[in-house]
């Protein structure tokens, strides 16, 4: 497998980030872990945005991933991190394969609202399940990896390094996907679906595969979130959570695979300091940040870089 320059740089950043985690303060390590987990879900949102679909229900797969991990630990006594994440992704893929049959018939705001409805139905089911702690959720058991148990206090850092490695790999894979024919087709569908049909391609099939893939990526994020926060609750499927993912996706923009990661990290940093410095009006700060980005950087933060690049070339 030959890596392109972009991919090498992505992996390079991942290695640097992992190394940085060793010297960074613990709270920052944790914050970055959570941000990267969220970024994975955002990747799922962005994958669909590239195809012109905005989902207000990606929390569904985020939640399925998280709960699958939590429940496998609790009821099946599985503690192996890799296996847990695999179960989470598998559960989400199965669900997405089913829902995708219906979802791919919808576009625009109807897609958004239907995805929201499914996510809220899961929320309702979980709220009703007192065996799973209802709205309180439950704590996720400590993880192991291939028989290795991290020493007490070492788990957050170990998990950080694992998630950075996964993010790096994911970035490379998604980068390749966006350059593949399927990825290009998604963009074509966004531009003009009817023309794609005339070209003899099936937009529904492409969107279906894309939907399932996005669900898998998001569930991975949900699994990591469950493992790092150590707790899951139905809030993960609530529409406000899904709204936040869309928020971050727009913050970064859809132009590059690295954008969601950067946006998620920036979002986490802005939010934590807004909460600390202005505990009573941190929402307002987020609101103005979002407006400023839409007004000044309509293509997301990423346009900062491409804009610069263009100027440098000219």
């Amino acid at each position: 497998m030959r890596l392109s320059k972009t991919e090498l740089i992505l992996l390079g950043v991942a290695v640097l980030l992992a190394a940085g985690g060793v010297i960074a303060p613990q709270w920052l390590v944790f914050l970055l872990t959570m941000a990267l987990a969220k970024a994975m879900v955002v990747q799922g949102v962005v994958m669909q945005m590239r195809a012109g679909l905005v989902t207000f229900g990606q929390g569904l797969f985020f939640c399925v991933g998280g709960y699958a991990v939590g429940m496998s630990g609790h009821f099946l006594n599985i503690t192996d991190l890799a296996l847990l994440l695999l179960i989470g992704v598998g559960a989400a893929v199965l669900l997405a394969m089913l829902l995708g049959l219906l979802m791919t018939r919808y576009r625009e705001i109807f897609f958004a609202m239907l995805s929201l409805a499914f996510s809220m139905i899961l929320y309702g089911v979980l709220v009703k399940s007192s065996a799973l702690g209802s709205t309180d959720g439950f704590n996720v058991k400590a993880w192991t990896l291939f028989g290795w148990t991290p020493a007490s206090g070492q788990a957050p850092l170990a998990l950080f390094i694992i998630i950075v490695a996964c993010s790096g790999l994911l970035a490379v894979l998604l980068h390749r996907y966006s350059r593949s024919s399927a990825g290009m087709m998604c963009e074509a569908i966004r531009e003009n679906e009817v023309r794609v049909e005339y070209l003899g391609q099936s937009p529904r099939w492409v969107l279906y595969m894309n939907y399932v893939a996005a669900a898998a990526v998001s569930a991975l994020g949900g699994g990591f979130m469950a493992l790092s926060a150590g707790h899951i609750d139905p809030e993960m499927a609530y529409w406000i959570t899904s709204g936040e993912f869309v928020f971050i996706a727009l913050l970064g923009g859809t132009a590059h695979v690295a954008a969601p990661f950067i946006a998620a990290i920036l979002f986490a940093v802005v939010r934590t300091y807004a909460i600390e410095l202005v505990p009573h009006s941190w929402q307002m700060i987020l609101g103005f940040t979002l407006l400023a980005i839409i007004v000044f950087l309509p293509k997301g933060l990423w346009s900062l870089f491409t804009g610069q690049a263009r100027r440098a070339k000219a």
Binding site: V54, I109, W282, Q283, M284, L286, G287, F288, L291, I294
Partner: peptide
């Protein structure tokens, strides 16, 4: 259209506070 949704989402955050 979707961008307009997000603008109003930002408005929601601002108005709440």
């Amino acid at each position: 259209e979707v961008l307009m949704v997000i603008i109003t989402y930002a408005l929601l955050l601002i108005l709440e506070d």
